[in-house]
Design a protein around this nucleic acid. Structure first.
Lengths: 154, 154
DNA sequence: TGATAATTGACAATATCTTGTCAAAATGGC
DNA sequence: GCCATTTTGACAAGATATTGTCAATTATCA
């Protein structure tokens, strides 16, 4: 354990603390970049993410379930889903298993705009990843996934 | 380049896309954990971060400069700084180089509470990093720092 | 020097997300 | 079947962040 700059930290603890600050900054920068990327489609980063959770799910889910999958509060997702519904990107379908918890599904318009967003995302992500080692990126993925698992179980 | 799941992505682009989702989730989970950690001190994650930027700076800075350092908007930092000033954690000092852009400095109370937060953070971060390779964490730091640099220069 | 541009804090509007509360609906254990 | 617990959407309040605008101040440069 290093004693120079962060006397109370283990080496790993100090490295993780630096990573946390990186994450805060990356979060803001990625949201801003995403907003710019999908703004021409009438989307925002938040709406895009919710749309993605719906599109990539095997079967239709109610709002509360979407929120759990995304790691957000029910209310945050509910508000965005309501906005998406008002703009015709998603619609609610009856849930045979629950009277109130309607299932959220993409409309044709929603599927189209999500496909368009995906087509914009790929070259943008490819360019952003240019020169970065795939192996390193997978290390980042593995470490962050572990971190998220630990934070979720607290 | 893999052709199976993300046909438009390079391998690195696909890995980076997964990392972006990790970052969004980690951001929320870390903010929530930070809020719980420093709540007994009368702080929040946002206030703690601003306090940290002030504490770790070599010399006193005005709000706009703090915002640039943190990668946030001027207005977001201004609001938090005003809250911190109202609660006696920071005070404004005249800036010899600028009539309006006052310098933000910690009060004794602000320095104390930041020291207390640091003492709580270290064991918490150490525990969260337990079992993670320091080398991997430094890889994460390096990759995210590169990412942030690229996102900032756009 | 003097005009133009950039920076800064103040103010307003808005988006995103959180916590808390409530009643309806579903679930689980007896 | 019944009751306690959990889940769910609705509603409200507040924290955190963004963009846009404005006037005051500072910096730049011809």
């Amino acid at each position: 354990m290093s004693k120079t700059r962060y006397p109370l930290h283990t080496d790993a603890g100090a490295a993780l603390t630096a990573v946390m600050l990186d994450i805060f900054r990356a979060n803001g920068a990625l949201l801003a970049a995403g907003d710019r990327l999908v703004e021409p489609l009438g989307l925002t980063s938040a709406r895009w993410q919710v749309l993605g959770s719906i599109a990539l799910s095997d079967h239709a889910l109610p709002v509360a379930h979407l929120a759990r999958v995304m790691g957000l509060s029910r209310q945050a997702v509910q508000r965005v889903v309501n906005d998406l519904e008002a703009e015709g990107f998603v619609r609610f379908e009856p849930n045979p298993h629950h009277k109130r918890a309607h299932l959220v599904v993409l409309t044709g318009k929603g599927a189209d705009v999500y496909a368009a967003a995906s087509e914009k995302e790929a070259p943008w992500a490819n360019a952003l990843a240019e020169g970065l080692s795939t192996e390193d990126l997978e290390t980042v993925h593995r470490v962050l996934a572990t971190l998220n698992r630990r934070l979720d179980t607290d």
